[in-house]
Amino acid sequence: MSQPVYHRVVVKISGEYLAGDQSFGIHQPTIDRVASDLIEAQHRGVEVAVVVGGGNIFRGVEVSSRGVSRPTGDTMGMLATVMNCLALEAAIERRGVSARTLSSMVMPQVCELFTRATAHRYLSERRIVLLAGGTGNPYFTTDTTAVLRAAEIGAQAVLKATNVDGVYSADPKKDPTARRFDRLTHSQALEGGYKVMDATAFALARDTSLPIIVFSIAEPGSVGAILSGGGRGTIVAG
């Protein structure tokens, strides 16, 4: 097993991916496989923190379009990320690996509050840390949360796990001529308007000099492959 390129990372997983082939909710075989991938990454000696979206349960932007205020809708979406993190925590712990959910929202009966000190301690204790509740503020996506938390806890990269194997010039599912990039700068990603992450996340990654690796999580072992410097993805850095 080759030495990992990074020793502390934040893995960003979309909530929609956890639905598997369902239109809504949590697909248990999918979440179990994601848990196995994260554990394999940790076994490589990498300290792993995870940010999960909530789109498989609730999307604040969508409900806001139907009359709920955007702050209220976003809060509901942040609560959905807590549910996803708790489900992923349970899947990890069933495999004999310790995991802890830390939320930006105060809910002591459910999980601990995120602080940098707590995250550092759990990571150093070889626990997988699940970062729930977004930033705790409306109008910010979980992509931005992933970059923010990575900067706060001193992670060396953000691994953006998606359904496609990198950043493309257009949606490859709709445009067969779309070009895949092996590498982009943060500024090129911003100027290109590529939708794989939002502009705020790319801008914050640029300002904090954090590389983002965009890859497909559809193949088992893909997280470990990226950490070993292999796999197929797009590096956004510099």
Rank of each mutant, 00 (worst) to 15 (best):
Q109M: 15
T81N: 01
Q109E: 15
E125Y: 04
P71G: 03
A87S: 01
V61M: 06
V68D: 01
T101I: 12
G73R: 05
A119W: 13
A87F: 01
L123T: 03
T101A: 15
R95L: 05
R127H: 10
S64C: 06
C85K: 08
C111L: 12
M76E: 02
L79N: 11
N84R: 01
A119E: 15
S104C: 12
L86C: 08
T118H: 13
R127Q: 08
R121T: 11
L123H: 01
A132N: 07
L123N: 01
A99V: 09
E112G: 14
R95Q: 06
I92Q: 07
T101W: 12
S65C: 03
V63D: 00
C85F: 08
T81A: 01
C85W: 08
Y122K: 10
E93K: 14
S104Y: 09
S64T: 08
T81M: 02
A117G: 06
V129G: 07
R70N: 00
G96A: 08
G77F: 01
T118N: 11
A90I: 05
E62Q: 01
R127A: 09
T72E: 08
A119K: 10
M76V: 03
M78C: 02
T75N: 15
V97P: 11
V68T: 04
P108R: 14
S69M: 15
V61R: 02
I128M: 05
G96E: 09
Q109C: 15
R116A: 04
N84D: 00
L79P: 08
I92T: 12
R100D: 01
S65T: 04
V63C: 00
S98V: 04
L130V: 06
V106S: 13
T115C: 09
S103L: 11
S69L: 12
S98W: 03
V68I: 05
T101Q: 14
A117I: 06
S65I: 02
A119D: 13
R126C: 02
T72M: 12
R127C: 07
A99H: 09
H120D: 10
G67H: 02
S69V: 13
L102Y: 14
Y122G: 06
L88C: 00
V68P: 00
S98F: 04
A90R: 07
H120G: 09
A91R: 04
V129W: 07
